[in-house]
Each structure stands twice: as C-alpha cells, then as structure tokens.
Simulated scan of single mutants.
Amino acid sequence: METIIQTVEMQEISESYDIIKELGQGSYGRVLLAQDKLIGQPLAMKLVRKDQTHLETFLRELSFSVTLSNHPDIIRTYPIFIGKRDHYIMTQELAPAGTLHDIIRNQVGIPEDAVKRCAIQISCALDYMHRRGLVHRDLKTDNVLLMDKDCYYIKLSDFGLTQHVGTCVSAMSHIIPYMAPELCDLTDEEFLILSPSIDTWAFGVLLFVILTGYLPWFEALKTDALYQEYTDWKPCSDFTPLPVRWKILSREAMSMLGIFFAHCPCCRHPVHSVSSYVDVPWKTKISAHVSHMADEEEELEINVVDS
C-alpha cells in the first residue's frame, strides 16, 4: 500500500499551525486541537510518543490512515508526517462531538435509533477495509469519532493495530472485552492468522455496549462467569430465558448478535449483515430500570463508562 507522505520539519509547526488546546491523552501520547494558519481550518493533531512506538509502526499507521481516508465513514488523515524530539505527529480532520464512548449512559446505552445509525456507518467502514484486505483489530467505542452528538455522521479511527488479512499476530499484552475468543486463548508461544472475523466479533461487542450501557463480559473465556453464562444460554436459546443483563434486548437483536458471536471464526457473518436487522426492534419494551435493578449490586463494576 503505497502512499505519498509529505514531511514537515519541526520548525514549520509553529509557522503552519496554532495549537489551541489539548483534546485528550493516553499512554500513546496526546491529541491537540490545532488550526491551520493558511486556511483557518481546525484539525486534530495526534502526537505519538517515540518511546511507545517504532517509526516503522507509526508510518504504517499513517499510511493506512491516509489511504482509507477516501471513505466517508473513516476519519480523514492528511498526508503529512511531522517528527519532533519526543513524538511523531499526524494531522486529522476534527471530530467536534468527541467519541462514541463519551455519549454512552451507564446501564442505558444510547437511543436505539442512534445505535442503528452507528451500526450502519461502522459496518460500512469495516466492510470497506475488509474488501481491501485489512483488519482493523482495535474496534471499540473510543475509536469511533462523532461529527455530531446524535450519531448522524460518525467516523471510524485509530489504525495503529491495523494489519493485512493473513498476517500472523501474537498474543496481546492484555485482554480487553472486545477481543474474540481465539485472541483471548492465544498463549505466548502461539500465533493467529488474521481474518475479518476478528473485527466482526468486536463489532458485536460494540453493538451490545451502545445498546445496553454495559460490557457483556471482561474476557471471552470460560473463566469469565458472564461469558460462560452467555455461551451456556446460546445453544438452548429457544427454551431458556435470556441472561439477566441481556433481557433488555429483543429476540431479533439477540439473533443479530448471535451471527457475530459465533465461536468459530469462519461461521461469523460479515459485518454488513447488520443491514438486514435495522427494520426490526433491538430493544424490548421492558423498562431498563427493572432489568438493571436485578444485577446492579453484583455487576456494577463493569459498567461501560467506569471501565
């Protein structure tokens, strides 16, 4: 994947950009709000710490980000590379409404119509990547950016872990709730051949999170009681009551999530399959208060916003 990247010298930053404020920070570095002096356009400036990433890794992310920018549901990244003493820097279009994570209400989620708008746009972005032989590998609510608070226009972002389909990857340093079971099961001596099914599983987790305001589990492993509860229910779903934290979801929504949560990666449906479910209800008419009161004391620790 060849991309022409313009290199900007450090001294040109102050000449070309006004730094306005910090938008966020993490272990990777910081995101700043800046303004292009020439055209007066606001933008996001992502600073990645050099002691946390190799130059080759950063340039791969930059290349993927720029190449994927043609899609309307993927954040636009400008073909500019800036290096300073402690950071590598890329510039992106500004998402003025923050991240999808920012608008989730604990034990509630976001409105169902907004969930469906998110589902269609994210699935389109992922499908675009998958058809080009790429796996995102880091789909989560923090990496979905909002152009407006009602999710009419959202953008997939953060391609730092993106790799080509067929790449061999090792176990991650830690497990997060969005990881598919085949990733959670990896030992230090094992490798996994990447396929789009990794993103499909994470997409299902993301939909559950924004529908309910809960994480479905900590880890997709049998040692996780909540995950085991779901996997025990699934083969008996026709005659067994839903697990408590899933009761707010309709049968149609459970069927939809089921095609993304197939334990065998090759049995998971592609993400664009979500479009077949947008005309059916995804939540029941059961009061969210009733369903959540039953498990509030026991499971409050894995609320989405607090996690």
Rank of each mutant, 00 (worst) to 15 (best):
T3S: 05
I4N: 01
V8L: 05
Q11D: 07
D18F: 09
E22W: 11
G24Q: 00
L33T: 02
L33F: 02
K46T: 05
V48D: 00
R49C: 00
R49P: 00
D51Y: 00
Q52I: 00
Q52G: 00
F58T: 02
S63H: 06
F64A: 14
S65E: 15
V66I: 12
I80L: 00
G98H: 08
H101C: 06
G109A: 08
D113C: 07
K116H: 04
Q121R: 03
S123E: 07
Y128L: 04
Y128P: 12
H136W: 11
C151K: 04
C151V: 13
L156P: 08
S157I: 14
G160P: 13
T167V: 08
Y178L: 13
D185M: 11
T187N: 05
E190W: 01
F191K: 09
S197T: 09
D199K: 02
F208G: 10
L211Y: 02
D232E: 03
W233D: 13
D238C: 12
T240F: 12
L242Q: 09
I248G: 03
I248V: 06
S250N: 06
S250H: 10
F261M: 14
C266V: 10
V274Q: 01
Y277W: 14
K283R: 14
V290T: 11
H292Q: 11
H292G: 15
L300R: 14
